[in-house]
Nucleic acid binder design. Structure first.
Lengths: 300, 300
DNA sequence: GTTGACCCTTCCCCCGGAGGAGACACCACC
DNA sequence: GGTGGTGTCTCCTCCGGGGGAAGGGTCAAC
């Protein structure tokens, strides 16, 4: 055991490929017990086998190499367990979403000629407490949960009751570019004292093409497709962020199949047509830093 | 609708990013309905929305782009459904393996001081029907299932009974390089008439360090680690392919926790020590094209 | 001492993406 | 008919986690 195990021996024992062992060395995940300074040969010891096994499992679970490094270099077992638990939670979430993607796919492949029900409707100006931020697409759900919790707390602290269902406005660049501005809100009658990220805003009036999505949000894209198809075929010009209203949502019932989500697509801008569009009104612009609504783009 | 939807419009409708739409075009997955020859602008139609949705789901399920292409270009709906079902089966398998990787990880992180039980044992020369092939590591399980089924069928056709539990020999390059030769066998007393890939071979006698793995094979690596550690610490020289014997396996009970797998690591070669090692004996070399056993490599 | 297996580094490829740069196209508005 | 602001084009680089090959040094069994 003087020189320890060569990389090949260690590979046979741990079932990690030689290539990966070298990579893990480079990345600082699994330092060989000894490296011959002249030849560069890596020598491992049997004591490193369990570490290698752990690395192997983490990689199997899709954990990025650098995160494994962070975990392995966390001395405090408590903190380490936390990091691990957090990732396992992420894995569970991913399992769930894979499961539902399978279900959605099955549904897509057996197309049911669902009749499209699209309303053209005017959204009145709506007073609401809101949180807005620029977010990345795959973090939008987590961000939504967090923001909505904060809004709930704000309302509770102020002793206010919502005057309608929760909702959100989403910049379309979220979908075209993968990141954009989003705003979630709870409608209220009286303004709340804004604290922190929470602002009191007025959603501007808008003409919306609205349809209702039933069930969990995993396949809400399909409903978006239906709505978008309708809009395009009606040759309506689209403009501005999309509006989602969680008529029945996770806050109402845990039974996802009972959820109802209204999707509203602004079909022409009412914003710039308002008096003093660029003055006081812009002050209340709920979507944030953008310069008013983007101009229409559909060529229908 | 003369010119159709621009890539941006289509992106908003389908929630696929512009970038990905271009990529899918390039890959032939989603050909725009029209491409302006002078400007190169892509124009889509609403009829393409469902296709885009399907592509989205397939990607969510981790299906490689070229496989999606194959599916979409398969005209026969039956054949297409088959391809889809096959991939969904793979996804299910992967879900399962993820689940068990989580379990294994949990076990690894709460290390139990399991006592190591390793036997040094001589494997007698064993007559068997076998199938050998050079395989890639992540296909070895599927290959095993298929080959073992063929062996079962061969024995049934010949009216022969196994004289012991199924087993396999696995080149260690499978682990160090990710691919190598593997051989699965069923021991028999009398030679069967070899048909197709099935050969009748004699596993050579060998000195093995043997330990038993309990439970499903997902965490068999851990037992390999224990065995390898033992061998390394005993300063025993390792040589030749590893030997697995499925004492209790999926063919005996579906209850994976009841499985027992013997892992045998040859600790020095008996092969080259045999008379006429390179002549008739090599003829029966069960592991195939390699030039006899590799020489010992552990430097313990 | 020879020799074959082993190990080293470096470079390139693959896949599925993300992002940017620079140039051109489109179209609403004036 | 201009013109400016977006939208879109292509091409390039980079990333992570791998696989493979080339070319040369090392080790130890014989």
């Amino acid at each position: 055991m003087r020189t320890g195990l060569t990389i090949g021996d260690f590979s046979r024992i741990t079932h990690l490929s030689v290539k990966m062992l070298r990579r893990y060395h480079e990345a600082g995940l699994l330092e060989p017990a000894e490296v011959d300074p002249s030849s560069g040969y890596r020598y491992y010891t049997t004591a490193q086998v369990p570490t290698a096994q752990v690395i192997h499992r983490f990689r199997e679970l899709g954990m990025p190499v650098r995160e494994i490094g962070r975990i392995l270099s966390t001395p405090d077992p408590e903190a380490r367990a936390l990091l691990v638990a957090e990732h396992l939670r992420r894995v569970e979430l991913q399992l769930e979403s894979t499961r539902s993607a399978v279900a959605t796919l099955r549904r897509l492949l057996v197309p049911t000629g669902t009749p499209v029900e699209v309303d053209l409707r005017t959204r009145p100006p709506t007073r609401a407490v809101a949180i807005g931020a620029t977010v990345v697409r795959d973090q939008v759900v987590a961000w939504y949960d967090e923001a909505m919790t904060e809004l709930d707390a704000t309302l509770a602290a102020a002793g206010l009751e919502p005057s309608g269902p929760h909702g959100g406005l989403y910049d379309d660049t979220l979908f075209t570019d993968g990141h954009g501005h989003a705003l979630v809100y709870i409608p209220v009658h009286v303004p709340a004292s804004a604290g922190g990220r929470v602002r009191t805003v007025t959603l501007p009036a808008a003409e919306l093409a609205v349809t209702v999505h039933h069930g969990p949000h995993d396949d809400i894209d399909v409903t978006y497709g239906v709505l978008g198809t309708y809009i395009a075929e009606q040759a309506i010009t689209v403009s501005g962020p999309v509006h989602e209203i969680y008529v029945v949502g996770p806050r109402d019932t845990p039974d996802a199949s009972a959820w109802r989500t209204e999707i509203g697509w602004p079909v022409f801008r009412t914003w710039a047509g308002q008096p003093s569009a660029s003055g006081a009104a812009r002050e209340a612009d709920p979507v944030g830093p953008s310069e008013g609504w983007p101009r229409p783009s559909a060529r229908g």
